[in-house]
Design a protein around this nucleic acid. Structure first.
Lengths: 198, 198
DNA sequence: CGGCTTATTGACAGTCTGCCAATAGCCTGC
DNA sequence: GCAGGCTATTGGCAGACTGTCAATAAGCCG
């Protein structure tokens, strides 16, 4: 698409933070629809209302902008769960799972894309970002359940987000699973993973 | 890297099948080390010992070659498990899980890269290939356990490969989990997923 | 209001991808 | 063993895209 620039409102000068956010927001909009290689820096610049040069000035690299956009797309929102210390673990876990599924159905496509996304063949930069997000999700989940934040439990829990995504996809996208079924399966699995049997 | 072509052995003419395989093999070698965007068609051609033009002739597109290479990297090998109809389900599942972990440790990095790979932001072509592989893995697993191939069970099981990958990564790459622990967690989870509670 | 800092631009060079006409292996029939 | 044809293979061309850099001007400060 080689469109000629619109009138191009006279050059305005923003603070670096504002500009960064503006550009990242534009990138998120585009990458939500098209994959990385099909989004040109020209398109990114146009969507953000700036010049290609500026993008490289702020992010140095097309890839770097992509990673920055992803880093912000992927954060799990802070759960605001009422905490019931008296409930048995199973029910607390169930509550957390329900909360995650709520968030999933709310964020929909975005969550599915982001949460379990991974890479293929050595795209380790993306993997690193996802790992960070999964680690954070593990901490949040442990906290929400009311379990101590032990290193060992976190290792186990951070393996789960990919499963949440794949199950979520069956439920939300393919409609091959009911929400009830998804919640039950995930609750049981989480319970297995937090059990301190060894 | 702008290297000048080596002496270039005189043009040899192969059957389309041979050539295709040769090119795909070369692509697999490169994509195992470098991500998609960092592998140029020139590099692919050079590794395969052919010209860029030929790659486009066979695959039409750089992307198409990538997908073909991936399709072949991702297939789960056919399990050759002895089948013990008398064992309880739990033990049969355990055997299958152990077999998968064996395969994982054998194929190592390749398996981890391929098995759970996914995409971000609308790279649906990759997702489609992974889905196919997961579906196949689900069928194989059901068969190995000795369960009937019902559509509903397959839906559940095809959600599991991502979990296998993430757990496998903790064990094989990060060494934060013992093989024993991974096997136990996965066995329990598979049991939950094949249980016909509803 | 004039000057300075620096955000922003525009153009340039190199690389890459996809396309297409030209070339030359290999096989077939004689 | 040789000529001819089919098609695998090549090389070069045009367009697009990425990254770099010096030049420009917007907004702040004295």
């Amino acid at each position: 698409m080689t469109t000629t620039e619109p009138p191009a409102t006279a050059r305005t000068r923003l603070s670096p933070e504002q500009r960064r956010e503006q550009i990242i927001a534009a990138a998120q909009r585009l990458y939500a629809v098209q994959p990385y290689n099909q989004v040109s820096t020209s398109a990114l610049a146009q969507e953000a209302g700036v010049t290609r040069g500026l993008i490289h000035h702020y992010f140095g690299d097309k890839r770097e902008l992509f990673l920055a956009a992803m880093r912000e797309s992927i954060v799990m929102p802070e759960p605001d769960l009422p905490y019931f210390p008296d409930l048995p673990t199973e029910q607390r876990v169930r509550l957390v799972v329900e909360w995650i599924l709520d968030a999933a159905s709310h964020y929909g496509q975005a969550w599915l894309n982001a949460s379990g996304a991974a890479n293929l063949h050595g795209e380790s930069d993306v993997q690193a970002i996802i790992d960070e997000a999964d680690e954070r999700a593990a901490r949040l989940t442990l906290d929400a359940i009311g379990l101590p934040d032990s290193a060992h439990l976190r290792v186990r829990l951070r393996a789960l987000p990919p499963l949440f995504k794949s199950v979520g996809r069956e439920w939300l996208q393919r409609h091959t699973m009911t929400r009830e079924e998804a919640a039950t399966l995930l609750t049981s699995t989480v319970l297995i993973f937090v059990e301190e049997t060894r």
